[in-house]
Write a protein that binds this DNA or RNA. Structure first.
Lengths: 154, 154
DNA sequence: CTATTTTTGTTGCGCGTGCAACTAGTGCAC
DNA sequence: GTGCACTAGTTGCACGCGCAACAAAAATAG
């Protein structure tokens, strides 16, 4: 096996590890957020992204990128949250194609209530992943990432 | 903001980054594998896991863990692949609850054809992720993981 | 041996998703 | 101005998913 083959295998291994850790955390968060607050992980992610803008609006397209969702899924997710009164659609005046979304106060309340659950479960899931010899290295690397570097994901 | 709050924020940031990279790669792989070989990422993952056992059987439960799937999803995924002649169910004699699964030669062929696509797209997606300042650190950390340490994910 | 609990895999069901096709609005060429 | 390409968001549709309930086999208790 040559150097090039090694690189391929390292990438594949890294991807398997990444997917495993992601699945572990995602499943844990999904169950906790769903049972305790009636929202899914993507819904939490979108609301958190909106709140992170601190009063700023976000377009559907940005939301789609922030949540790694397709356009259609984003449309329906926003519709769902709007029907529940957690956010509002705001037509943009200068570009009549664009639609801004904004958290309502009810949305912020729910987010505030859900955040402790989210953070606790995330903490717990990471610890559990770190207990697996296969996943521990990635979890360790994750802890080294600093929020300071780079731009927000959305 | 205290030290504890920093830890919470670092975890949340790491998780957002992880999810973003995962989504990027997963979407790219999904499109490529689906259009070029007619299989999904999970299907490829399962077949790859089976092949990795090198002639060994795997039980449904192991497959479920390896692919981060529920029991029901695993049942249907195996049924799908079996209907396409890519793998076979093998009843286990000593434990009549257990069901082993094994790749057929057709399954191995398809896997062999799909692997170059998978590896190339993975390479490309990682490079694209590395171009984002926000995601680059994690991609770099991923390259540092070595396949030698630890046990297989399943 | 019989009763209970646990494990393994399968099905009914509702729901969220991506893709493709579509409508509506913008920007550019000329 | 008119025509054309592009972007933003929505809808029809088929499909895979998780959850809960289930059947069957094994392990454990008495």
């Amino acid at each position: 096996m040559g150097i090039a083959d090694d690189a391929v295998e390292i990438r594949a291994h890294g991807w398997r590890t990444l997917a495993a850790v992601h699945g572990l955390i995602d499943t844990a968060l999904e169950r906790a957020l769903q049972s305790e607050h009636g929202i899914s992980v993507v819904e939490y992610t979108v609301m958190d992204a909106l709140n992170r803008q601190d009063g700023w609006h976000m377009r559907m397209r940005q939301l789609a990128r922030a949540a790694a969702l397709s356009n259609s899924a984003t449309t329906r997710l926003v519709t769902r949250l709007e029907d529940r009164g957690l956010l509002t659609r705001i037509l943009c005046a200068d570009d009549r194609r664009g639609i801004y979304t904004e958290l309502t106060s009810a949305g912020m309340d729910l987010l505030t209530r859900a955040r402790p659950t989210h953070d606790a479960v995330l903490h717990q899931a990471l610890d559990e992943a770190a207990r697996s010899p296969e996943l521990a290295p990635l979890v360790g690397a994750l802890r080294g990432l600093t929020p300071a570097s780079g731009e927000p994901v959305g």
